[in-house]
Design a protein around this nucleic acid. Structure first.
Lengths: 225, 225
DNA sequence: CGGTTATTTGACGGGTATCAAACACCGTGG
DNA sequence: CCACGGTGTTTGATACCCGTCAAATAACCG
């Protein structure tokens, strides 16, 4: 089911990088490969959780949904990233909803097999713990941002986090819809739009999802207000 | 160093509950027991992390600090809870600052010994993963709250989460300072105060840290606005 | 090209933060 | 026992950020 390029992704994923070919073979044998279309739901809050997922292509968001249709995006995962590891230790139910942001391909990994593998090869428990520790750190950073920074500062930090440089000029593409980015940052799309607009005075231009920053250092200074 | 009552706490802690006496002995042999006074710092963001901690008595908060003195409380831990498990998998540095909220006693557990133990007894890796999964869930809930709920709704949910009942009347004590609770909920102390005051029309009275709720169901209804 | 979905922009109102002052609470020491 | 200072809490007045609603514009896709 997996192409050879996709196998490359699997073997490079931090969660599985420590495993030998034979273990990988066992783990992924007959594993379901899913093709999701944009906006298709993978699982909902409260669904029984038997699989964790590795993104092969596209993007998947995890979110909590409020009754009236409002949603709180918790994280967005891209190729090579795994999610829902935690569910297998939380009473076997997913605590969030997973939805494809773009068309996406994923492979599901059996919780049971992974647990069995941990008992045989404890080293991979470290990989799982490291993976979850990473997620924890991301969430902590998110909480910190929302509590301490203004919408403008959050927008700036988002740009800084994604420009891939620490100084000089930079150009890059936004990873997804502005509405989704806004939600990740804990603000409304309109507010995010205005925040970006307010940065045009400081050498930031955003057109059609492409960002160009004249001088990254100037943005860093703006963070202090 | 540990009293027998404190040993009881250790053995009942979910992280260690699966261990036999001999393993516990090895793990805690000569482990540092710390007595912190109120507001004393245990470690800071960026400090090298060699220990994870179990709270024996009192409360400890984890937070991120902004340069100007603002702080974002991530979580508060009480007796029987462990924290900083994640640090040992994140490059060996604490990503947050830990401070005693009240006078507190803790015991530090060696990362190295715990890692060694995982290799010998893989089952305890499950306990660690479960512990981290719990933390993840708490953080997700926190993010959801801040993104989807008004300050008033967050205050109500806090009361509901701590009253220990699902209907009828309830009385209980607030777990700590209102300022700290407010920070946990992502609002200012004044705002929290007003939120509580606004609930007096609905059978909620708070005097001297003691909360009494006439009818929990009424509060649940209030969540919808 | 037309229809749908994103994004922008504007006007407006409300919820929260901020600042400031009064007040309650508590342990300490006189 | 009361005075006292420090800390925590409440309350009020004000400002402003941000969300909401609405409409216009732009981008996208079949």
């Amino acid at each position: 089911m997996l192409t050879s390029k996709e196998w490359d992704i699997v073997t490079r994923t931090t969660l599985f990088a420590s495993l030998g070919p034979e273990d990988l073979e066992k783990l992924f044998d007959k594993s379901p490969v899913l093709a999701l279309r944009r906006n298709q739901q993978l699982f909902s809050e409260g669904d029984p959780a038997n699989l964790l997922f590795l993104v092969l292509d596209g993007q998947v968001k995890l979110s909590r949904l409020a009754p009236e249709g409002a949603e709180a995006v918790v994280h967005v995962f891209g190729p090579g990233e795994t999610f829902a590891e935690a569910a297998m230790f939380m009473g076997g139910r997913y605590p969030v909803t997973a939805t494809a942001v773009t068309a996406a391909r994923l492979v599901g990994v059996s919780n049971e097999r992974l647990k069995a593998l941990v008992l045989v090869k404890p080293e991979i428990a470290f990989a799982m713990l490291a993976s979850m520790a990473r997620h924890l750190k991301v969430l902590v950073a998110q909480i910190e941002q929302m509590k301490l920074l203004t919408t403008r500062q959050r927008a700036i930090r988002f740009l800084l986090d994604h420009c891939g440089r620490t100084g000089g000029a930079a150009t890059f593409a936004l990873p997804h819809d502005k509405a989704l980015i806004a939600n990740r940052l804990g603000m409304k799309a309109e507010t995010f739009s205005r925040a970006l607009a307010s940065l045009s005075d400081y050498g930031v231009a955003v057109v059609g999802g492409k960002v160009s920053i004249e001088d990254v250092n100037r943005l860093v200074l703006l963070l202090d207000d």
